[in-house]
């Protein structure tokens, strides 16, 4: 224990109670709320990946819907053409497909920074969207592709078992375990020498280059990892949603990924996680409450950017720091 870095020890201390709470949750709340949280955790995986680029490397991607969508469509294609329904294979397909696409798009995008990077990522994601939209005999067009309940670790949904119960229990734990693993992997990545190099690139590209960081190469790897996280999230998302449509490839969904990362605070590790979960509740609430949910979210975003630019977690840390100082 003593050899562990202080940051990691703090993480385990803070995370322990949260993990316990997440683990007992399905026994405490309605299945509906558990499923809602599953969505939140899945978006959190995408946000974690996204933030490796924005928060740690200083690149704002406006095209992360591409990798999320590729993960989701890879699952749908695996089911459609290979006729398998094993979740493990789905996840594998989603991760591999998004890795290939992210590697390719990354090669193109990481040569640029700032606004050009954002626009290039956006343009490339729109290529995929338009293909999914137009090649309806492959992708189902706007109808999308249906993905029924998969088998988890070889066990399929019991005959006569309610789908909601399945999603709220077994599938929730499946998502939870992968989510925790993703958080762990990302934590290791950002605290590794590689992660530090990314932060050096973010803070000063020229200096990073001078101390021997291969800027281009590091950015590409960060892009790849980031895309794979989004693809993993996409793969987990499809069975929950039951359907994949071109909407998840559209640039406005990329905007939502940016939204929840900023909502939580992109300057912190936990920010994107908190942001994704909160955003998911916020959006679900708004959609159920009013047809003008976009306006509601837009107002929240504008107020957030005006008033709390460091997001929920960033602001909480600042307030906590102040309290400790005055105490």
């Amino acid at each position: 224990m003593s050899s562990m870095p202080a940051a990691t020890r703090r993480l385990l201390l803070a995370a322990g109670p949260i993990i316990v709470a997440l683990a007992v949750l399905p026994y405490v709340v309605d299945p509906y709320d558990t499923v809602l949280l599953s969505y939140g955790l899945i978006f959190a995986i995408a946000a974690l990946g996204f933030n490796l680029l924005l928060g740690y490397t200083g690149l704002l991607s406006f095209g992360h819907s591409a990798y999320f969508g590729v993960g989701a469509y890879a699952v749908a294609f695996t089911l459609k053409y290979l006729k398998v329904s094993s979740m493990e294979l789905f996840v594998l397909a989603g991760v591999l497909a998004s890795a290939v696409v992210a590697a390719l798009f990354g090669l193109i995008c990481v040569r640029y920074t700032r606004i050009y990077f954002s626009i290039l990522t956006l343009a490339l994601s729109q290529v995929l969207w338009s293909l999914a939209f137009k090649f309806f005999w492959v992708t189902g067009g706007t109808d999308g592709l249906r993905v029924p309940t998969p088998t988890l670790l070889g066990v399929s949904i019991g005959a006569g078992q309610d789908k909601m119960t399945f999603l709220a229990h077994r599938y929730y734990y499946y998502v939870l375990v992968i989510f925790l693993a993703a958080v762990g992997v990302m934590w290791v990545i950002v605290h590794s020498p590689f992660g530090k190099a990314l932060q050096a690139i973010r803070d000063n590209e020229t200096r990073a280059e001078f101390v021997g960081v291969q800027v281009w190469h590091y950015r590409w790897i960060a892009f790849l990892i980031s895309g794979v996280f989004a693809g993993l999230a996409g793969a987990l998302w499809v069975p929950l949603n039951g359907l994949t449509t071109p909407d998840i490839l559209l640039w406005t969904f990329s905007g939502e990924i940016v939204f929840f990362t900023v909502l939580g605070g992109f300057g912190t590790f936990a920010g994107p996680i908190v942001g994704a979960v909160v955003f998911n509740y916020l959006k679900t609430f708004a959609v159920g409450y009013t047809v003008y949910w976009q306006m509601f979210l837009g107002v929240v975003l504008v107020l957030l950017v005006l008033g709390l630019p460091t997001g929920i977690v960033g602001t909480a840390i600042r307030l906590w720091g102040k309290r400790r100082k005055t105490a």
Partner: peptide, 20 residues
């Protein structure tokens, strides 16, 4: 720039529904 893109994205959401 991130904030500028975000504020106009928020504006996009608002105006879309304002028309509706």
């Amino acid at each position: 720039e991130e904030y500028q893109l975000l504020i106009t994205f928020g504006l996009q959401l608002i105006l879309e529904d304002l028309v509706r």
